[in-house]
Design a protein around this nucleic acid. Structure first.
Lengths: 331, 331
DNA sequence: CACTCCTTGGTAAGCGCTTTCCGGCGCGAC
DNA sequence: GTCGCGCCGGAAAGCGCTTACCAAGGAGTG
C-alpha cells in the first residue's frame, strides 16, 4: 500500500457516500445510521485511515492547533511553560506547533508571520518584550491582524502589549524577596540584572532595588543565561566589592552561574556572600547551597495561557512566592 | 479588515491571475514577468497576506513540518533534543509540531496517529522503548504505514525498531564509565537503575554492571526522574549498604536526586559515597560536588535526526564520553 | 387518508491553494 | 514571408475534506 487512504477510499470501502463517512468519523451534529457508522469505522480501521488535518483545516476554515513561540526551549524557564501549554492544549484536543526566537525581535516577527500561516486557533508568545520597544510596532500590527481574523493571542509575561496576557508577578515577587532579605539582616546588595533591554529582567531588578532601604552597591548587566551569570559574578568579584553580602540574580539560571563563579573563586557561599535568584526552576533546590528564589509556577502559566485563549480572555496573574533556602541564612 | 487575505485577493489587487500570484509568491520554477512579480509582492505586503499553509499542504500533497514526540518536555534530556530538532528544522524551513507521551505507550500510539494526520515530512520519536516490547507491534504498524506513504521516521535512542535511528551510545558510555571508576579505585557499586521496562535505562545499567569486576552490591529500580532518584537513594541508604562506595544513577536527574538524598541524610559526598550519572545535562556541573557523568550531545542528536530524515537515512551514532568531576575523586 | 414535518443519505459546492494544460505572442530560421 | 519553437499568462482541474442543500421516506396529525 502506498499513499495514504483518503476519506473517499473509506467511503467506497464501506459502501456509503463521502458525506456519511465524514459524518461518522468526526463528531458531526448529524446522526447517522448505526450500521453505516460501524461499517465506516471498520473500513477506516482496516485501511489505516487518518484524517488529513490540513484538508480539514482548509475545509473548516480553522485548524485545531495552538502555536507557541518561546525564546529558547532548552532553558528550563521556557520548557516549563511549554510543558504547561502542551498539556493544556492536548486536553482540549489541540496540537501544538512550536518555534524558537532566540530572543531576536526580527526573527520573532518572521516566525509570527510564518505561524500565522498555519491559521492556528491560538498563538502564545512567551518571552519578554524589549524595554526599548524594538520591533513592537510591526509585531503588534501582525498580531492585530491575526486577532482580526479570528485568532487568539496570549502573551506570557509581556504586559506592555494590548492582548490577553498571563502576567507573571515580577515586581511583587522581587519586592517581597528584597524585604525578606533585609529582614534576614542583609545590607549590601549587588544585582545581576540580566539584559538591559529585557522587560522581565528590568522589572525584577527595578522592583528589587526599589524595595531596598538603600540603593544597591552594584548592578551588572549581561545575557539571561547561566554563563552570563557566571561572567557577571566574576566581574563583580573583580570589582572587589567588600560591602556586598548578597547577590540577587534576576533569574535562577544566572544565579546558578553566579554560584559556580563564587565556588571557582573560592568564595564562601553563603558564609561570605549570599545568593538569591528568581523562578524556582527545579534545579534551584539541588544546587549547593540550595538557592533562595521566588517561586513562579511556570507550568500553570503555560496552561493558563491556553485557558485564557479558549475562555473569555483578559489577564491572569500568576503569583510569585518567596522561597528561602540555604543560600541566604539569617545574618 | 476581518478574515485573512487570500491569494485570490492578492491576485485581484495586483490585477493578475491566481496562477501568476501563486508563482510570484513561492519559488516556482516558472518565470514571471518582473513587473507582475513586483505588483504581486506589493499587493501581498499591503494586504498582509500570509499563505495558508494548510491549503498549500493540501494542494501540494505534502506539508513542510516535522512532528516531534517526546516523553516529557520539561525534562532537560528531552528539551535538549527538542532544541536540536527545532534548530535543524528551522534551518530547512520546516515547522515543528510537538506532543508529549508521558512515557505511556498507549498515549504514544494515539499521538502518532494524530500527528500522522498532519502528513508531516518527518516524524521524530524520542524516548525509550519498553523492554517488554509493550505496544511495539501496533506502533511499528503505524510507523510503517507512515513511511509507506512517503514519510520519514527517525527514532532517537530506540534501536530495537526497524527505522532510521539516531543511536545514543548507552552501552559504550556506561562501560567506559565503569572502567574509569574502577580505575579510580572504586570497588563497591550500587545502581539506581531507573524503570525496569525502559530500554535506555536497562542498557545503561546492564553495560555498567557488565563492565564491573564483580556484580554490584545493589540495584534499585524506579522512575526516570529526580524524585525517583531521591527515593531510590533513600532506599539504598536504609538498606545500610556499608560496602558501597559509589552509586551510579542511569541518568543525571536521578543522580541529582540521589545527591539531594545523601545531603539530607548527612552523608558525605564524595567522602563517604561517590555518585555518577549519565547524559551531562547542563546542571550536572553546577551541583555540588560537580557530577561525574557521561556526556551525550543531545542537541546534536536532535539535529542529526532531522538531517537523517532529509538525507539518506540509516543510523547515526552519537558518541558518549566520560566526564570525571568532583563527585568521584580518586580513592 | 392526505398533508406536513422531521430524519437522514447523498450530491455537489466550496475551502485556499498548486500545477497542468492551453493559447497567444515574439523570435529566429529557412 | 511563413513556419516552428519557446516563453509566459491565465483558465481550470484538482488536493482531501466539510457542509449547505436536496430528496426521499417515515412519523405524526387532523
Amino acid at each position: 500500500m502506498t499513499g495514504n487512504a483518503t476519506l473517499y477510499d473509506v467511503a467506497r470501502a464501506a459502501g456509503v457516500s463521502l458525506a456519511t463517512a465524514s459524518r461518522s468519523l468526526n463528531g458531526s451534529t448529524r446522526k447517522v445510521n448505526e450500521e453505516y457508522r460501524q461499517r465506516v469505522l471498520a473500513a477506516a480501521e482496516q485501511l489505516g485511515y487518518t484524517a488529513n488535518v490540513s484538508a480539514q483545516a482548509v475545509a473548516r476554515g480553522t485548524s485545531a492547533t495552538v502555536a507557541l513561540l518561546v525564546s529558547d526551549i532548552a532553558d528550563p524557564y521556557f520548557s516549563a511553560i511549554a510543558a504547561g501549554v502542551i498539556r493544556a492544549s492536548e486536553e482540549q484536543g489541540l496540537n501544538v506547533t512550536m518555534a524558537v526566537t532566540e530572543r531576536d525581535a526580527q526573527r520573532e516577527l518572521e516566525l509570527v508571520r510564518l505561524l500565522r500561516g498555519q491559521r492556528p486557533r491560538v498563538l502564545v508568545l512567551a518571552g519578554s518584550r524589549f524595554t526599548d520597544g524594538a520591533g513592537d510596532e510591526p509585531l503588534s500590527a501582525e498580531l492585530e491582524s491575526f486577532t482580526a481574523s479570528g485568532g487568539h493571542v496570549v502573551l506570557i509575561s509581556r504586559h506592555r502589549l494590548a492582548f490577553d496576557t498571563v502576567a507573571i508577578d515580577n515586581t511583587g515577587g522581587a519586592a517581597a524577596l528584597a524585604a525578606s532579605l533585609v529582614d534576614l539582616g542583609y545590607r549590601g546588595f549587588a544585582v545581576l540584572a540580566g539584559p538591559a533591554n529585557l522587560v522581565t529582567a528590568q522589572d525584577r531588578a527595578a522592583a528589587f532595588t526599589g524595595a531596598l532601604p538603600a540603593p544597591p552597591v552594584a548592578v551588572v548587566h549581561g545575557a539571561f543565561s547561566r554563563d552570563a551569570g557566571y561572567a557577571g559574578m566574576l566581574e563583580l568579584i573583580d570589582r572587589g566589592l567588600d560591602t556586598v553580602d548578597l547577590v540577587f540574580a534576576v533569574n535562577d539560571v544566572m544565579a546558578i552561574g553566579a554560584l559556580a563563579a563564587l565556588r571557582d573563586r573560592g568564595i564562601d557561599v553563603p558564609g561570605r556572600i549570599a545568593v538569591a535568584g528568581y523562578d524556582d526552576i527545579s534545579t534551584a533546590r539541588d544546587v549547593t547551597p540550595a538557592l533562595t528564589t521566588v517561586r513562579v509556577d511556570l507550568e500553570s502559566a503555560g496552561a493558563a495561557a491556553v485557558a485564557l485563549a479558549l475562555g473569555d480572555g483578559g489577564t491572569v496573574q500568576v503569583g510569585a512566592e518567596v522561597v528561602l533556602r540555604a543560600s541566604t541564612p539569617r545574618r
